[in-house]
């Protein structure tokens, strides 16, 4: 939570958020599947001001060989922000500590749903490139990568989605943008398997009561219905 001293007011007098959204309202979300020629599967998402591209290759040979698992496929995941993706400084390219952590938790989400045991001794590669960022890019990355995996025909038990919930004073908000992410009282990105409702990613920082956590998860599960619907439509539109 950066710069607590100059914390801007994040809610308007009418109770709405600065961009006019209700507390539990998603930013505009659109997804297009099958956007890259070479990749086995791909998807492009615009979510608020975020622009995210994901691609999947594989199953393919495991490089380097010591990552090989004789029983199942290994998922390699890269999440990276383009050096021109944010309004502020030119970012250094290459994975930093933040990107490495996000790559790891994203991989773990897909380890759960991909039928890895069908492809022993192979690798499935997921690349997530953030081309334009405005808060919530890891959630957008997971939501996009799930569509890319389905587009690639990688067998999965479910099509996962991800979105964050947060807190401004005593109010729970959904789908934080960059400004809210920087100045809210809590931020909680979550990924869910909608078929079972099980939580596959859960991160949080800030302060939340037990009750607020529950309300946050409820808000996410409710919004997930909309996200799932948009993911489904993106996958179906490939055949129209």
């Amino acid at each position: 939570m950066a710069n607590m001293l100059n914390k801007p007011e994040l809610l308007r007098e009418d109770g709405k958020r600065l961009d006019g959204r209700d507390l539990d309202e998603l930013r505009p979300l659109s997804i297009k599947a099958n956007v890259l020629k070479n990749a086995a599967g791909s998807a492009y998402t615009e979510w608020g001001n975020n622009k995210v591209l994901a691609a999947v290759y594989g199953p393919k040979e495991v490089v380097p060989r010591h990552f090989l698992d004789p029983e199942r496929a290994v998922i390699k995941c890269r999440y990276a922000m383009a050096p021109f993706s944010s309004l502020s400084d030119h970012g250094r390219s290459g994975p930093n500590r933040r990107a490495i952590e996000i790559s790891k938790v994203t991989k773990e989400v897909f380890d759960n749903v991909v039928l890895l045991e069908e492809f022993p001794e192979t690798a499935i590669e997921i690349s997530i490139e953030i081309l334009q960022s405005d808060g919530g890019t890891r959630a957008a990355g997971i939501t996009t990568a799930a569509v890319a995996l389905a587009n690639a025909g990688i067998p999965m038990r479910d099509l996962v989605y991800s979105v964050s919930a947060g807190k401004i004073k005593d109010k729970i908000i959904l789908d934080l943008d960059m400004l809210e992410d920087n100045y809210s009282d809590a931020d909680m990105p979550v990924a869910v398997s909608p078929r079972t409702g099980s939580v596959l990613l859960l991160q949080m920082d800030g302060e939340m009561t037990r009750q607020e956590l529950n309300l946050g998860l409820d808000t996410i599960l409710e919004a997930g219905k909309q996200i799932s619907k948009i993911q489904r439509q993106a996958l179906i539109d490939v055949y129209e």
Binding site: K37, N49, P83, S85, L131, Q132
Partner: peptide, 22 residues
């Protein structure tokens, strides 16, 4: 791209290049 001060995407056949200027 609105966060970049300049940007362009080029498709040359199947080759696609995105350029961002900061």
């Amino acid at each position: 791209l609105k966060n970049a001060e300049g940007s362009a995407q080029v498709d040359l056949g199947g080759t696609r290049v995105l350029c961002g200027v900061k």
